[in-house]
């Protein structure tokens, strides 16, 4: 049976991880490769690297990093941040990334999804959506959630599926950073209206939040950062608990 995925997300700036990490004894917790190795050992199913300071000068740094990760990590990983062209994607895939995540650039130019999907196959195109519920309407936001648009989350999700996205990574800005659980209602609606995998992001605080995301939010994967980095949740313990709740999980 296909298992549900647990995905730690690492924020990268100038080739280094930015959020503090203290869940495991690492010689250099700022080294994304060391950290990625530790997560792979602990049973992470996949990793996401988000280049939060993506600038033109930075492209080479992130490519070098991707090459190093591919060399040392034996689980799949996605790279996101600042990707806006087929050339960007070509470079990252050539360095060994399994998937890329695009966000604002897809909203600004939706045809980018079609171009990427056609050239590289939908399996490596993750479209990330940041959205916020405002007066009962879920609205897509740009640039890390700072710029609101009038685009409805569910309309956009359907459109990106039609354009050839392979997966949707949905971050609820109402939940992100709150540690009060994922946006399960919106997630389960997303899961019903599209036929591609949904990754939940934003709101993880406890093990039961993950359980709820899978059972109530009906998601295929759940992503989190700080609960893993700060050791609030230990991945092996999380996975054992999820199995107790009859959720298919790889140990």
């Amino acid at each position: 049976m296909l298992s549900k995925r647990i995905i730690p997300c690492l924020d990268i700036k100038n080739g280094r991880t930015v959020k503090g990490v203290n869940f495991v004894d690492l010689r250099d917790a700022g080294d994304p490769v060391e950290l990625a190795k530790a997560y792979a050992q602990l049973g992470a199913d996949e990793l996401v690297f988000l280049d939060i300071a993506a600038t033109l000068e930075n492209r080479k740094t992130i490519q070098d990093l991707v090459l190093k990760i591919a060399e040392h990590i034996n689980i799949p990983f996605t790279v996101g941040g600042g990707i806006s062209s087929t050339a960007d994607v070509d470079d990252l895939l050539h360095c060994g990334a399994d998937k890329v995540a695009i966000n604002s650039s897809a909203v600004k130019r939706p045809n980018l999804i079609n171009e990427l999907s056609k050239k590289f196959g939908k399996q490596c195109i993750v479209v990330a959506i940041d959205a916020k519920e405002i007066n009962g309407d879920w609205l897509v936001h740009l640039a890390g959630g700072t710029i609101p648009t009038s685009i409805n989350l569910f309309d956009w999700a359907k459109e990106i599926e039609e354009r050839g996205a392979g997966e949707i990574l949905f971050t609820s800005m109402n939940h992100d950073g709150t540690k009060s659980g994922f946006a399960n209602e919106a997630l389960s609606k997303l899961s019903e209206i599209v036929n591609i995998p949904i990754i939940a992001s934003g709101g993880a605080g406890t093990i039961s939040h993950f359980s709820d995301a899978f059972l109530k939010g009906k998601v295929d994967a759940a992503l989190a950062a700080s609960v893993f980095h700060f050791g609030t949740i230990n991945i092996p313990t999380l996975k054992k608990e999820l199995i107790k709740n009859q959720i298919p999980i790889r140990l």
Partner: peptide, 13 residues
């Protein structure tokens, strides 16, 4: 078939 989420992405036995 169309009833399944496609692509199948992830770890299966």
């Amino acid at each position: 078939s169309s009833g399944l989420k496609v692509p199948q992405i992830g770890w299966n036995t």
